[in-house]
Nucleic acid binder design. Structure first.
Lengths: 157, 157
DNA sequence: ATGTATTAGGTAGTATGCTTATTAAATATC
DNA sequence: GATATTTAATAAGCATACTACCTAATACAT
């Protein structure tokens, strides 16, 4: 009988499960406060809020999605009337993104709540373990940034 | 000026980036050895190999995907002639899954290689840090299993 | 044994997350 | 100043990863 390999101890599988739990907790907490904002949409809104007037390519770099995905995310945010998209007068290829007043109000209400439940994602850990885990994951993300298909670019303010 | 919150230090965002890097490394390494097996397909093949004759719902539980996703994954594995799907004689609702001889040979060749490059996913860490990271991520995955929409069920052999 | 509940797999629909290819506009180069 | 390259966005297509709902088949409870 050949050696049987289980995926359950492979980093790739564990990371996928962690991501699955993370998004489930995010979605559940968001639903609990009556909102239907996805993790990707929240990150995009936060980045547009910090960098108003940025274009889609810059947004993609800040949050580290590829540009095609960002296009779809912005489509949905525009449909929800949370983002205004206009052609840049400086560069007519680019689309300038800003939050609508509704989105400003929404993010002001949402950000502290999202901050607060982030710790709940790393369930079952002591405070110290949580710190260690975040530090080590961040280290891998920094070292592996260029390996991903949509590396993070620009500041991390 | 309101407090501006960046997602870059939020666990949810870091986990998503980690997952993004993980799948990119997997895809790149797989391409390097001339195969087009996705992480999900590899995990499914490994589970079917360990539990030949299992049905799709059992497979979904073992690898912790929802049943609809597994249905699509199995569709593609059947199309690639890597998995045989037949109606169970015991329960005519169920589909019994087994590897084809091609898939057996493929997995025998693939498993040591995939095992070997798993460490490359956790780039930029010392061996000790890698151990710690895997241990802490596993702890969260165990504690948070029930929180995900598709919890892992059955053994982890 | 019979009606109820549960379960396996499916369809339809939404949202990522990526690929390659195309269009249009800006920039670099000669 | 004409041309070549690069860049921003989109289109089309594939593969997850879910929800809600549907049908068929099985289990179970009385």
């Amino acid at each position: 009988m050949a050696l049987m390999v289980s995926v359950h101890r492979m980093p790739g599988h564990i990371i996928r499960r962690l991501h699955q739990i993370s998004t489930a907790v995010f979605t559940e907490r968001m639903a609990r406060i009556g909102e239907e904002i996805t993790p990707v949409q929240f990150a995009s809104l936060a980045a547009i809020r910090t960098h108003p007037g940025l274009d889609q390519a810059t947004l993609a770099g800040l949050v580290a999605y590829d540009r095609v995905t960002i296009g779809g995310v912005v489509d949905r945010l525009v449909a929800k009337k949370l983002v205004a998209r206009t052609v840049s007068p400086k560069d007519r290829r680019a689309r300038v993104l800003t939050l609508t007043p509704e989105a400003e109000a929404l993010m002001q209400a949402l950000e502290p709540k999202v901050e607060a439940f982030q710790a709940d994602i790393l369930v079952g850990l002591t405070g110290e373990e949580r710190e260690t885990l975040i530090r080590l994951m961040s280290k891998v993300v920094e070292a592996g940034n260029a390996l991903s298909r949509a590396p993070q670019t620009g500041d991390d303010a």
